[in-house]
Nucleic acid binder design. Structure first.
Lengths: 228, 228
DNA sequence: CTTGATATTGACCATGTGGTCAGGTTGCTT
DNA sequence: AAGCAACCTGACCACATGGTCAATATCAAG
């Protein structure tokens, strides 16, 4: 789907400076991005219409196109923003860290991301669901490397007897899916639990639950015990 | 979204018999449903076009409408088919069953469903992602009841000391998300693991992994030990 | 005030959309 | 062979789609 169009339709004005600012521009762009994230998340790329985005942002359609150049450009920009958020929580870990601490931090931060940016989370999910036409490169490159680096550390932990010798990649997928679920399937969660929304308390409970089950499930003893 | 249109556009002919058969009809309907499932799963309800479905089915657009009446009707029918599949694997369990056996069967059957019907699985996911406009009733009714019935049994197991006192609803969500992941996020899984597809062996490995981690994680001892 | 960049937007266009319909062909039953 | 229901489909419709453009309005700097 994403044909290689080198320059993705910047507004025809202000070609000079890379990122021209302007208070109006910033404010409007923010508004548009937020609205677009919601619409794309709900209807997917094809199902979203610029008109709907414009209405959600309280602007005429032309104005949206003026700032974003094209529907495709807007979508790509949203994906990039989401990947940036994702990357931001991937701080480095080493073999010498405590598995329990790292895994808990992993679950917590991923859960927080899904909660802080549910629309972005869903946008990402919709993109993958549709076969990831815009994210192939990212998945097979950056993200793959990141996963494999983590996986190697998990394996070393297993060798040192700090955790069970489970397949580390499946473990990462387990954490991803379990945390992502509460953003992507929010409608299902709310419908089944009969709630209007998930409170902070709910989220904390879920996080604790997931941490407990997953850590115990792969034989990691919580850090409450005596340190090494 | 789903306005109450009592009669969802049956083909104007054959009004008499409820479910008129005919070999041609059956064959074509199957073809159309399969094609539609794929297109809806990839692009969501709004993003899917009847034209695209028709092309995927190798039929003219008019023919698709002839059999299915309307895009909406076709979509609803697919959702219902998927819910039926889902319901089919929900056999009854009782407090006296072995938790380990039940949980493993739960994981296995859910995994098998996601694998046997990946497009249906994704279709369902897209529907939920979009706020479940067509499935509100199902979620807040049937499915909710089912979950709560199971939850009560898990609680009783916990009381009898057969498993840890974890929140049973979060546990069910954990199993759902972990298994669903391999259908819905297939593109991500394949991209990261660098595969073309998940083999039967892969799926068996994943199932074993999930069973082991989740059972251990909530303190259920595998059935290999002496039976009650 | 003047000037030039930025911001705004309604009108417009080619194409795609779901859906209808009339007029045809096929195939089974009598 | 006749008749009739099922099947098939190209032409068509009103409307939504992404995108362009020219005309105007706003605003900061000289």
């Amino acid at each position: 789907m994403p044909e290689g169009s080198s320059i993705p339709d910047k507004p025809r004005t202000q070609e000079r400076g890379e990122a021209a600012n302007g208070a109006t521009r910033l404010r409007n762009e923010r508004e548009i991005l937020a609205a677009a994230e919601k619409v794309f998340a709900t209807h997917g790329y094809r199902g979203a219409s610029v008109q709907a985005i414009a209405e959600a942002a309280g602007l005429p359609k032309s104005n949206v196109l003026y700032y974003m150049g094209s529907k495709r450009g807007l979508y790509v920009r949203l994906l990039e923003r989401m990947m940036a958020r994702w990357n931001a929580l991937l701080d480095d870990i080493s073999v010498d860290d405590d598995p329990a601490e790292v895994l808990e931090a992993f679950i917590r931060s991923k859960m927080a991301l899904s909660r802080r940016h549910p629309e972005g989370s869903r946008l990402f999910a919709a993109e993958i669901l549709g076969g990831a036409p815009f994210l192939q490169e990212y998945l097979r490159g950056e993200l793959r490397d990141w996963v494999q680096a983590r996986a190697r550390i998990f394996e070393q932990w297993a060798e040192r007897g700090l955790m069970d010798p489970v397949d580390p990649v499946w473990l990462i997928f387990l954490i991803w899916s379990a945390t992502q679920h509460y953003a992507d399937f929010e409608a299902q969660v709310l419908g089944i639990t009969g709630r209007d929304e998930l409170s902070d308390v709910d989220v904390e409970q879920i996080t604790t639950f997931l941490t407990r089950v997953i850590l115990k499930g792969c034989g990691v003893t919580p850090p409450s015990a005596a340190p090494g």
